[in-house]
Design a protein around this nucleic acid. Structure first.
Lengths: 232, 232
DNA sequence: GACAAAATCAAACAACTGTTTTAATCTATG
DNA sequence: CATAGATTAAAACAGTTGTTTGATTTTGTC
């Protein structure tokens, strides 16, 4: 078989994931990719018909796994509570899932960093793919779970809430990454960040945990205060 | 005098602001810039000593104005209420200021789009400048105003809250821009966005207004629910 | 071991990048 | 009007980009 272990292909994907993540699509040349993966330059075009497609494959390789993980966590939390999950559990599933995937250093966790980059940039490399197959299903599942947790909410209200929560998640992911990038490049302006937000000094695990707690509590409190449950 | 109207310099700055905003720093070549501004290619290096510096100048031209506008609004709201401004007013000053600046189509409003791009990308073109002179002062002023509105909050609590609010603001800015970019490029995946968040169908002014209201109310509700005021 | 397919390699490709150079033109002041 | 300085212009520069070529090596199968 030719599909099992090419070696070259996988090394290329790994190196590409790492480099694209840390420096962005444009700033990484295929020569750097080839060097990092220890393959010939032509291998990129031989195995993946071009740089663009390599980028797409990097994403495709991970995103199904990650998407399904969150979808599963959301589904699990709703069926465990027989269709009426606690609001905080729903939010936590989503927030924790995204944060830990995005900030963990295991290779499998690099996807969300790429996605945040992709969404906030307008590089349009695979926008349709992202939106239709990755972002939209997760949003919809999150939306549905939240409506099961708080049936008194309208769809539009849930839309606003979901946007607020995702916005917070991405922002905290972005802060962490920015601080690490600045730190890695010994840019002294990292001190300005750390001073303004000392939580960034902590190790990843604690940052993920504290951020998850904050976003969950902050958002749940807002929801219940704005749209109080009607206890019949 | 040589400083008043060069013509070329200003046309270059205007074109650069527009192009950098819409396509990003890397994707815009100096030849495109020169064509759009209707100047010779060499003019970029003659007037700005390189592409990098032109980018920096584009930002410098706007950012002081914008920063001062928000700082003023925050200051004004605190002195009007004699040092204890209503929480919602403080949040609204910040949110409204950023949103309207970022999403209005007047040229003066392009800065924040560039900033969001700059912060969420790691292009590092003027990170220190941004953080130290633009982001940090605004964050600090926002932070201070909020502590005046709710003296019972600790600095750390305020830090978390500020991050949550800014995160929402940037996310809603990003959504709007993304939808417009997709729309402009007739990418049909814009439909996926609009379907998931129909508010994006509205004109700018209403989007800014509704988003401001939502973020303000959502965040204020969370704050008061999480950290209730002690009424002595 | 022979043979064909797959994979790797070094080299060259054409297109583009930001920047300089050199000459021509404009502009204001004497 | 003449002339010095500021500005524009066309062309060339050196370097990099993603991609392709054609030869060479490796791999698996009979």
């Amino acid at each position: 078989m030719n599909e099992d272990r090419s070696g070259t292909k996988d090394r290329l994907l790994d190196a590409a994931e790492d480099l694209f993540l840390h420096h962005g699509y444009e700033k990484v040349s295929i020569r750097e990719l080839a060097l990092a993966a220890d393959v010939n330059i032509a291998a990129i075009n031989y195995h993946f018909q071009g740089k663009d497609n390599l980028y797409r494959e990097v994403i495709k390789r991970r995103f199904t796994v990650q998407r399904d993980r969150i979808l599963l966590a959301l589904e699990e939390v709703t069926i465990r509570h027989a269709g009426s999950p606690p609001l905080e559990d729903v939010i936590r599933s989503m927030v924790q899932g995204q944060l830990s995937d995005a900030l963990s250093d295991i290779p499998a966790g690099n996807l969300f960093k790429l996605i945040v980059r992709e969404v906030h940039t307008e590089s349009r490399h695979s926008t349709a793919l992202f939106l239709r197959e990755m972002v939209a299903p997760v949003f919809r599942a999150f939306s549905d779970a939240m409506m099961q947790a708080r049936p008194n909410l309208t769809q539009e209200q849930v839309d606003w809430i979901v946007a607020s929560i995702i916005g917070q998640v991405h922002h905290f992911i972005g802060r962490w990454q920015k601080s690490r990038v600045l730190f890695d490049s010994s840019d002294d302006s990292v001190e300005v960040m750390l001073e303004a937000f000392p939580v960034l000094r902590q190790p990843v695990e604690q940052y993920v945990q504290q951020t998850t707690d904050h976003i969950t509590q902050f958002s749940a409190a807002a929801i219940d205060a704005l749209y109080p449950e009607v206890t019949s």
